[in-house]
């Protein structure tokens, strides 16, 4: 861990050096009225005026639809072609928020629970995160309530904190971050000694995780689930924009004698997610599915995986068509 200063022009030169190195760079871009991570070549494509991208960066390490392996049937025999980790390109996620970077830990905790996930790990090994600390937030943000903060460095390889002169404090946090900086070492100047805290948005915590946890440990049969979820229409919007939601489906893409087995995003909010073939559905009502969403993130994951399944990014609240606001709902559970 090393702290440096990088000037405004230094940032641009360094960004260009990353592009020239051949790595793919994804950054927030404003297009079709949406801010989302897109492949970029130029720093001026990167959006500046926004609080949060619609989608998280999870697709970089957990693609929406990914081929687990492919196969071909020849004369009654089957030939398998395994997923090749070498097929994953080196990728830099640029201008990631701390709440997005923090999402890799819970995501990986799920994928690597008691058995490594080769595909996820291959993406992780090739993905570097350059995060920018947050100078602004909106009413959906609550990272400080879930062990995070606007300057949280967890998960980041390098974190930049923008300064009024257009330059930035650069915290080089991991060896991978060191390698990224080494692409153009000259722009990383000596630390000027300014404190980064001054440039971070002030975001007071809204609830205590312990309190939520205690309440949830006794809440399975509570009426709160039905009360909160009445308006929920059971789509996958909240899960798909979330940096930590990992539920998936496995499907078959068949073309004659060839085929591919595909892992694709799924959501615990969907009515058919747990439907047995017999027709029995243990989570028949939306209230049961809403309960699963909250308990999984705030109770089961902390207990089983030692990590909270929410980074406070607020995306689910912004994406929900019927304003199911997770901060509002969790706060009200904490206060029950």
């Amino acid at each position: 861990m090393e702290t440096k200063y990088i000037s405004q022009s230094g940032i641009e030169q360094w960004f260009n050096a990353i592009i020239t190195s051949g790595k793919r760079v994804y950054a927030p871009v404003n297009s079709r009225g949406q801010i989302d991570f897109k492949l970029v070549k130029n720093l001026n494509e990167v959006s500046s005026e926004y609080i949060q991208t619609t989608q998280s960066i999870k697709a970089s390490v957990y693609p929406k639809a990914e081929v687990l392996f492919s196969y071909e049937k020849v004369n009654g025999k089957v030939n398998l072609t395994d997923f090749d980790p070498e097929s994953v390109p080196e990728t830099v996620m640029w201008k990631v928020h701390p709440c997005d970077a923090a999402g890799f830990k819970p995501l990986s905790a799920i994928f690597n629970w008691d058995g490594a996930d080769k595909l996820h790990n291959a993406h992780l090994a090739k993905t570097s995160l350059v995060s920018f600390s947050c100078a602004s937030a909106d009413e959906s943000c609550f990272c400080t309530s879930v062990n995070g903060s606007p300057g949280n460095t967890a998960g980041s390889d390098i974190q930049l904190t923008m300064l009024p002169d257009g330059g930035a404090i650069a915290e080089i946090l991991t060896s991978r971050g060191g390698e990224l900086a080494a692409l153009l070492p000259s722009v990383f100047e000596a630390d000027k000694g300014v404190k980064k805290e001054k440039y971070l948005v002030d975001l007071p915590a809204r609830f205590s995780l312990e309190e939520v946890n205690t309440k949830l440990s006794k809440a399975f049969n509570s009426t709160v689930w039905k009360e909160q979820s009445e308006r929920c229409i059971g789509c996958g919007a909240c899960a798909f924009v979330c940096p930590t939601c990992a539920c998936f489906d496995i499907q078959e893409d068949v073309h004659g004698s060839k085929g591919r087995r595909i892992r694709c995003w799924d959501a615990c909010g969907f009515a058919m997610f747990t439907l047995h073939t017999s027709g029995h559905n243990p989570r028949e009502h939306q209230s049961q599915r809403w309960r699963q969403r909250i308990l999984h993130k705030f109770s089961y994951m902390p207990e089983r995986l030692g990590v909270v399944g929410c980074t406070g990014c607020g995306r689910c609240s912004r994406a929900c068509p019927v304003d199911m606001n997770i901060l509002e709902h969790i706060t009200s559970i904490a206060q029950q």
Partner: peptide
């Protein structure tokens, strides 16, 4: 128990009963 399963290895998220995963 027989819950709906996909991955069988505790990752796909659909077989849990409370905090326990039927597959694990």
């Amino acid at each position: 128990l027989e819950n709906r399963m996909k991955c069988g290895v505790g990752k796909c998220g659909r077989c849990n009963v409370g905090k326990l995963y039927v597959c694990k």
